[in-house]
Design a binder for these strands. Structure first.
Length: 251
DNA sequence: AAGCCCTCCAACCGCTTTGTG
DNA sequence: ACACAAAGCGGTTGGAGGGCT
């Protein structure tokens, strides 16, 4: 059985939006707010499908959009986030205020891919192009304060591999290609308050260090000399109560 | 000036996920 | 548990515009 169309296609406009359509959409959302995209076109007097309205608003008309060229810092952040998250554009966009997933996706495909290739880096794997897939040492990303068996189980359940220094327990190596499928969930408060256990001689990297920001105040693995008093770490500079690294679950 | 090629990006399409009854 | 609707997401496309010959 086929999927029912999202709208009555016979009576909808397609293609580029006109100024009048934009104005109507903006006026309607200002008056009524976002939501109920399916019924919005009719209510706003637009001959567009709801999906189209949503996309137009999110990608182009939203007042908080930061239009214009990407800064060098934004480039680097996108590269790092892409290395961690893959093509999860909406998650990446969530870390770049004022940028949309569509914008970042386009920017990646048109600029950053080329930039990485010119550096000799495979934009898909983030490895040097000539490097064999199995080469190199395994780097362990340590989730701060999560090195007990019980705690690690939570991540294992979520699909994250951890390196645990415990004789009887298996050693979980970091999967070389982290194919993260992430979801947002409430922050995990309890773990965030537990002290960091460095796991003996195992050198582990916290997220901050794995992102190349050693020595930052957010480093929690001590490799970069960061303060161990940090109970959690700031995933790409955003230590918030709403979304921290623990809020990233993998399927 | 004209034609071709390339780049960029807005918008579309189809699939997945989430919410609801 | 199931079906359906709605929303969200990521891949892809197509057209506008600019550069080059």
């Amino acid at each position: 059985m086929g999927r029912s169309p999202c709208c009555e296609k016979a009576h909808t406009n397609k293609g580029a939006w006109t100024k009048e359509e934009d104005d109507r959409l903006i006026a309607y959302i200002r008056a009524h707010g976002e939501g109920c995209w399916r019924s919005l076109p009719k209510a706003a007097g637009l001959l567009r499908c709801g999906k189209s309205c949503r996309l137009r608003w999110i990608n182009y008309l939203r007042p908080d959009l930061k239009r214009g060229n990407f800064a060098e810092e934004e480039d680097e952040l996108i590269i790092k986030l892409h290395g961690l998250l893959g093509n999860k554009w909406s998650l990446i966009a969530g870390r770049l205020p004022g940028r949309t997933d569509n914008e970042i996706k386009n920017y990646w495909n048109t600029h950053i891919r080329r930039k990485l290739l010119s550096r000799g880096i495979d934009p898909t794997t983030h490895r040097p192009i000539n490097e064999p897939a199995s080469a190199g040492e395994v780097t362990t990303i340590s989730f701060a304060g999560s090195t007990t068996k019980e705690e690690s189980d939570k991540f294992i359940t979520a699909g994250i591999n951890l390196n645990i220094k415990e004789e009887s327990s298996p050693v979980f190596e970091r999967c070389p290609d982290l194919n993260l499928e992430l979801r947002i969930s409430p922050p995990y408060q309890q773990q965030a308050q537990e002290p960091l256990k460095t796991g003996g001689s195992t050198a582990s990297l916290c997220f901050a260090c794995s992102l190349g920001v050693q020595n930052s105040k957010d480093c929690s693995c001590n490799i970069g000399g960061g303060s161990s008093s940090n109970s959690g770490y700031d995933f790409v500079g955003l230590k918030t109560g709403i979304l921290d690294y623990r809020s990233l679950e993998m399927k």
